[in-house]
């Protein structure tokens, strides 16, 4: 295991070391000590390695992640796993705003709550939040799946495209063009699969979820709205 202590090594040096890893590296297990909320930890990784952040992380932790598994053993600041392409990011505490924003792929698991704008403009990532999510989550979400075991705040899925949203608890309000949809067997299957990937296994009853998605009324110009312009 490679240990990097941020009390003595700079954050930039850490990222340089991680970026230098070859696809077939033997250094597959990294531990980052004393993160102390520093920003941009383990960003831009592109190797099948595991990086454990031993504490709270600042902004944009594991941003642009490809292939790697990044585990934050605390809270994560704004924009965790922003623009992730593949791999997995696991936050053991809470995540701040814009978790998984614009992410194209991979799996983001948040054990606690995620605050406002979780999954904003998500483009294919799968996100599992074991707690609740804040207002304006999944705003303009394009594709991918957001699963929330707790509640969702105001304006969930505003101006949503084709992302799939599943919420087990209450939804304070739905955003424009976001509607509740029927939970069919294929959706339950997807829920089971992703909950398994998030380590929740069969502990969760997928029948308890409600599904939300786009009513697709904003997709095309409607002539009745001509006067509005």
């Amino acid at each position: 295991m490679s240990v990097v202590d941020l009390a003595v090594t700079s954050r930039r040096e850490l990222n340089i070391q991680l970026h230098a890893l070859a696809p077939n590296t033997n250094q597959t297990h990294w531990r980052v000590e004393n993160p102390n909320g520093q920003h941009s930890l383990a960003v831009g990784l592109d190797a099948p390695v595991t990086v454990e952040i031993a504490g709270h992380a600042g902004y944009y932790c594991a941003g642009m992640n490809k292939q790697a598994t990044v585990v934050v053993e605390g809270n994560a600041g704004v924009g965790v796993a922003e623009n992730m392409i593949s791999g997995m990011v696991h936050v053991k505490g809470d995540a701040s705003q814009a978790a998984g924003a614009t992410a194209h792929g991979g799996l983001l698991v948040i054990d606690g709550d995620a605050s406002a704008r979780c999954g904003i403009s998500m483009k294919g990532v799968n996100i599992v939040v074991k707690g609740s999510i804040g207002p304006m989550s999944a705003f303009m979400a394009q594709s991918g799946t957001l699963i929330v075991l707790g509640d969702a705040g105001d304006a969930l899925g505003d101006s949503i495209y084709e992302a799939r949203l599943f919420v087990r608890g209450s939804v304070k309000s739905l955003g424009t063009d976001c509607v509740e949809k029927t939970l069919r067997e294929e959706h339950k299957e997807e829920l089971r699969e992703l909950l398994n990937a998030a380590g929740l296994g069969d502990a969760i009853n997928v029948d308890e979820f409600k599904r939300y998605g786009s009513s697709r009324k904003l997709y095309n110009f409607h002539v009745d709205n001509a006067a509005a312009y």
Partner: peptide, 22 residues
């Protein structure tokens, strides 16, 4: 404004750290 500002406080490792809701 950021968690970094709180790092030097006594006992921060066991504090309840949270983001105030809007």
């Amino acid at each position: 404004s950021e968690y970094r500002a709180l790092v030097g406080l006594p006992g921060i490792e066991n504090a309840r750290v949270f983001e105030p809701e809007p």
